[in-house]
Deep mutational scan, measured.
Amino acid sequence: ELVLALYDYQEKSPREVTMKKGDILTLLNSTNKDWWKVEVNDRQGFVPASYVKKLD
């Protein structure tokens, strides 16, 4: 499943990933309501769920 980055996000820990507004990311896990695991540029990590939106 793919998600769209709604905002820029700068990683604050090694478990997170940086994304730019408009990026298309692969959603790996959305079981946590606050932090979703995504893959971007061959890196996996977490981003705030409120910063991304699922693409239909």
Rank of each mutant, 00 (worst) to 15 (best):
G45R: 01
L4E: 11
L25E: 00
T18D: 03
M19A: 02
Y51Q: 05
N32H: 11
Q10P: 06
E11W: 06
T26I: 15
Y9A: 00
V17W: 06
W35A: 02
D23M: 15
E16D: 06
K21W: 03
D8P: 06
W35G: 01
D34P: 02
Y51E: 02
L6A: 04
M19Y: 02
L4D: 00
G22K: 02
D8V: 03
K20H: 11
D8C: 06
E39G: 11
K54I: 14
D34L: 14
G45V: 05
K54A: 08
N29V: 08
A49C: 07
S30A: 13
T18M: 04
N32R: 10
V40G: 13
S30W: 10
P14M: 09
E11Y: 05
S50E: 09
K53I: 15
S50R: 14
L6S: 03
S50A: 13
N32Q: 10
L6G: 02
T26S: 10
T31F: 09
D42Y: 11
L28V: 12
I24P: 02
W36L: 04
T18H: 05
E39L: 12
W36N: 01
I24W: 05
N41I: 12
D23R: 04
T18G: 08
E1F: 13
E39V: 12
Y51G: 05
K20I: 08
K54C: 09
K12Q: 14
V17Q: 03
S50V: 09
L6R: 06
V52D: 01
K53E: 11
Y9F: 07
L55K: 05
D8N: 08
V47H: 00
K37V: 12
A49S: 13
T18Y: 04
L2C: 10
Q10A: 13
A5G: 03
K12W: 05
V47M: 00
D8I: 02
V3E: 01
L6H: 03
E16S: 07
K54D: 04
E16V: 05
R15C: 15
L6F: 03
E39T: 10
T26C: 12
V47G: 01
N41V: 11
Q10F: 14
W36T: 03
V3T: 03
L2N: 06
L4A: 07
V17N: 03
E39I: 12
V3H: 04
R43S: 06
L27R: 00
N32W: 08
D56E: 13
V38P: 01
W36K: 02
R15Q: 12
P48M: 04
V40R: 15
L4I: 15
K33S: 12
K53H: 09
L2H: 10
N29P: 03
D8Q: 04
R43E: 05
I24N: 02
K54V: 12
K53N: 06
K37F: 15
T26Q: 12
V3C: 14
R43I: 07
D34V: 14
D42P: 06
L25M: 13
V17E: 00
D56C: 14
R15L: 14
K53Y: 10
P14F: 09
Q10T: 15
W36F: 07
W35N: 02
K37G: 05
K33D: 11
E1C: 15
N41P: 10
Q10H: 14
Q44D: 07
W36D: 00
V17R: 02
G22N: 06
R43N: 06
V52C: 14
K33H: 12
T31Y: 10
Q10C: 11
W36V: 07
L2R: 13
E39H: 08
V52H: 01
E1W: 14
P14N: 11
V47Q: 01
V52S: 01
N29H: 08
E11Q: 14
L55E: 04
L6T: 04
R15A: 12
L28S: 03
K20Y: 11
T31H: 11
R43P: 00
V40E: 03
N32I: 05
K20V: 09
D42V: 07
K21T: 06
L4R: 09
D56M: 12
E11A: 15
D23A: 09
F46R: 04
N32V: 05
K53C: 15
L55V: 11
D8G: 06
V52Y: 01
F46P: 01
L55S: 05
D8E: 05
V40F: 15
R43M: 07
S30T: 10
K53T: 14
D34Q: 11
D42F: 12
K20M: 09
K20S: 09
F46S: 03
V52W: 02
K54P: 10
A49G: 04
G45E: 01
S30D: 15
N41C: 13
K33Y: 09
L27S: 02
V17T: 06
Y51R: 06
A5V: 10
K33T: 11
R43K: 11
K54W: 08
S13F: 07
W36P: 00
S50C: 14
V17A: 05
K33Q: 13
N32E: 10
V40H: 15
D42K: 12
N29Y: 07
Y7I: 08
M19G: 00
K21F: 05
E11G: 15
D8K: 03
W35D: 00
P48S: 02
M19V: 09
L27W: 02
I24Y: 07
E1Q: 15
K37T: 07
I24L: 09
K33C: 10
R43T: 08
D56G: 13
R15G: 14
K12I: 07
S13C: 10
I24A: 03
N29F: 07
E11M: 13
V3L: 14
V3F: 08
K33F: 09
Y9C: 02
A5C: 12
W35S: 02
P48E: 02
L2Y: 15
V3P: 00
L25H: 04
Y51A: 09
L27N: 01
N41W: 12
E39C: 14
D42S: 13
S13K: 07
K12H: 09
E11S: 15
V52A: 03
K21C: 09
L27V: 07
G22P: 01
R43H: 07
E1G: 13
K21E: 07
D23K: 04
S30N: 09
A49T: 05
M19D: 01
L4H: 05
V17G: 02
R15M: 13
V17Y: 04
S50M: 11
V3N: 00
V40N: 15
V47E: 00
D56V: 12
V17S: 02
V17D: 01
K54S: 08
P48Y: 03
L6C: 07
L2I: 09
L4V: 15
Y51C: 09
L4Y: 12
N29D: 15
T26R: 15
T18L: 03
P14K: 10
R15P: 05
Q44H: 08
G45I: 05
M19Q: 02
T31S: 15
D56T: 12
E1L: 13
A49I: 03
K12M: 11
L55F: 10
L6E: 04
N32F: 09
G22E: 02
W35K: 02
T31I: 09
D34K: 13
D34G: 08
K53A: 12
T31C: 12
T31V: 10
D8H: 06
V47W: 00
L6K: 05
A49N: 03
L28Q: 04
M19S: 00
D56L: 11
V40S: 15
K53F: 10
K20C: 11
D8A: 07
V17L: 15
Y9Q: 00
V3I: 08
K54N: 06
Y51L: 11
A49H: 03
S30F: 07
V40M: 15
L25T: 00
K33V: 11
L4P: 00
Y7W: 10
Q44Y: 07
G45C: 03
V38R: 00
M19E: 01
D56S: 13
D34I: 14
K20D: 04
D23T: 09
Y9S: 01
W35L: 03
K12Y: 06
G22F: 05
V17I: 14
T31P: 04
K37M: 15
I24E: 03
N29T: 08
